[in-house]
Amino acid sequence: MNPRHLLRMSKWARRPPSEARVKLVIGIIVACLVLAGIEWLVGWPDWLTLNGDPRGRVGF
C-alpha cells in the first residue's frame, strides 16, 4: 500500500468529513443509481446514439 494512502486514512480518522459532505456524496451516488436504473428499464434513446463510422471514427 502506498504511504500516501496511509497518511490520508490517518487524516480522515482524526478529522472525518462533515455530515453535509457525507450527505452530498451519498446523494450523488443515489442520483447515479437512479439514472442507471432508468436507463436499464427504459433503454438508451436513439437520439443520444452517435452515428459512427464502422471503424470507430465519428462522422461529421
Rank of each mutant, 00 (worst) to 15 (best):
P45F: 01
G56K: 10
K11Y: 12
I26E: 15
L50E: 08
P16C: 05
I28V: 14
R55V: 02
D53I: 01
V30I: 15
L41M: 05
I38N: 05
R14P: 05
G27V: 04
V30A: 15
R55I: 07
L6P: 04
A36L: 13
P3N: 13
N2Y: 12
V22H: 12
W47L: 00
M1T: 02
N51A: 11
C32I: 08
M9H: 09
G37L: 03
V34Q: 12
G27L: 05
P3I: 13
V25T: 13
N51H: 09
L48P: 06
G56I: 00
I26W: 06
I26Y: 14
P3T: 13
V22F: 03
N51T: 04
P3L: 12
V34F: 11
L24G: 15
V58K: 14
L41P: 04
I28S: 10
L41D: 05
G37F: 03
W47M: 00
G52M: 08
R57P: 00
G37D: 04
P3S: 08
V25G: 13
R57N: 03
P16K: 00
A36R: 06
H5F: 11
S10V: 09
G59C: 13
P17T: 08
E39T: 11
P45E: 03
E39L: 13
A31Y: 14
T49Y: 06
S10Q: 15
G43I: 06
V58Q: 00
R14C: 15
R15S: 08
G27H: 02
S18G: 07
L24C: 12
L35T: 07
E19C: 05
W40Y: 08
R57K: 09
N2A: 12
A36K: 13
V34M: 08
R55N: 10
G43V: 04
W47K: 05
L35I: 01
P45V: 02
P17S: 15
P16M: 01
F60D: 14
A13P: 02
D53N: 12
A20D: 10
V58T: 14
L6H: 00
D53T: 09
I29D: 13
E19W: 10
G37P: 00
L48F: 14
R15C: 11
A36F: 07
V25Y: 11
P45R: 05
I29M: 15
W44Q: 03
L24W: 11
A13Q: 13
I38R: 07
L6K: 11
A20H: 11
G59P: 03
V30T: 09
A31G: 14
L50N: 10
R14I: 12
F60P: 06
R15M: 07
C32E: 08
L33T: 02
P54E: 12
L6A: 05
W40P: 00
R21Y: 10
